[in-house]
Amino acid sequence: MNLQIIILSSFAIFLLGIFGLSFYRSFLSAIIAFQFIIFSATIIFFSFSLFLYNSSVWDKTFIFFAFASIYILQFLIVFYNYSTQTGVYELDVKKDFRFFIFSKSDWWGEDRIGDD
């Protein structure tokens, strides 16, 4: 297997993640799509490290710290969603977590509170 194929497959995984984020609406879909992007970045890191730089230590250090921090952030978001400390528990059913919504309330004009 050569580097080019690995990079292309990792790009395909990244596109899967982007598709998941833009197509599906639920919270879990967003979190799963994030894993695809993380997976894609990790493949690129390790493949370059293995093929070009003879398993560089810096790459592993980056992966370690990046994983630690990004998973803390994701954990905080998931924890907040499923926390019973707030009055609302588990916001996943019928909720639209997409980032790009083309509606009047999302773009300009008055914000209709009841819409979400």
């Binding site: 992007i37 894609s40 690129i44 952030l73 994701q74 978001i77 907040y80 916001l91 977590f97």
Partner: peptide, 24 residues
């Protein structure tokens, strides 16, 4: 949650960007 999911997404894009720049 929606706002910070976007924030996490932007950081993941950055992670992927660094993987290319740093890796290559």
């Amino acid at each position: 949650i929606r706002f910070f999911l976007l924030s996490a997404f932007s950081l993941l894009l950055m992670f992927l960007g660094f993987s290319l720049v740093y890796g290559a």
